[in-house]
Design a protein around this nucleic acid. Sequence first.
DNA 1: CCTCCCCCCTGCGCGC
DNA 2: TGCGCGCAGGGGGGAG
Length: 272
Amino acid sequence: MPELPEVETTRRSLEPALLRRRIDRVIVRDRRLRWPVPRELEARLTGAVIRATSRRAKYLLIDTDRGHAIVHLGMSGSLCIVARDLPPRTHDHIDVVLDDGAVLRFHDPRRFGSWHWVEGDPSAHPLLAALAPEPLTEAFDGAYLHRVTRGRSAAIKQVLMNGNLVTGVGNIYASEALHCAAINPRTKAHRLSPERCARLVDAVKETLARAISAGGSTLRDYVDGRGNPGGFQQQYAVYERTGQPCPRCGGSVKGFRQGQRSTYYCPGCQRA
DNA sequence: CCTCCCCCCTGCGCGC
DNA sequence: TGCGCGCAGGGGGGAG
């Protein structure tokens, strides 16, 4: 489910309910996530005061006076603020009980999500240390993309989804950004000119920003911290639109498999 | 180092 | 209606 826009939308919608709250209790109902939830999480989080929320790539961080919880939503995870007396549903694996009676509840049917605890500088954590620059900052520009694609013969779509080169762009937004930049997803990364790299960077930024503005994408079950679905799926140009007209040239959108994932593009206006 | 492929897991829509 | 199959937003890790 969640790529960068969904994680950012979740973070923004949760933040007002979390700031300055003290954590009374942490209930872990199922520890079997992507990695086993460390017992250290409950031990250290209980009694901590939340100072801020932040995001790095697709990781959401709960920053406290004692350290940081690093949360990943995987494919099917969501975080919601609920009332303390609301009974948990199936797959509600973690509750963070706040001192005002609200609960931050983590729901994840597929359990590809994860929770970690880190003290000190969170960017030094092994999960975060090797990540590429944030896509919505100036560090991610055409010169950067051109440099890191030299010597890479992989298809540009797969390069966009490599978290060590570009962060936050998953399967939906890779297809959408390539359409926006009018670049064929099969194009070998090292063949892109500096100009086309710059255009692709602009397209990634624009696509992510528009998705955040729309509250992210809800394909099946994504909801933000208040339980609201996103609306960006209404604006897709190509994703899951096989056979429908391209909004730019009217051509028929095509889908195909690329590295075990589905890719969508318009053969009419996305050039190699 | 890069690339490919598999896997973790549950749910849903489809065809028969 | 029931069942088996393929597929789904992520990403670590091993083989080659």
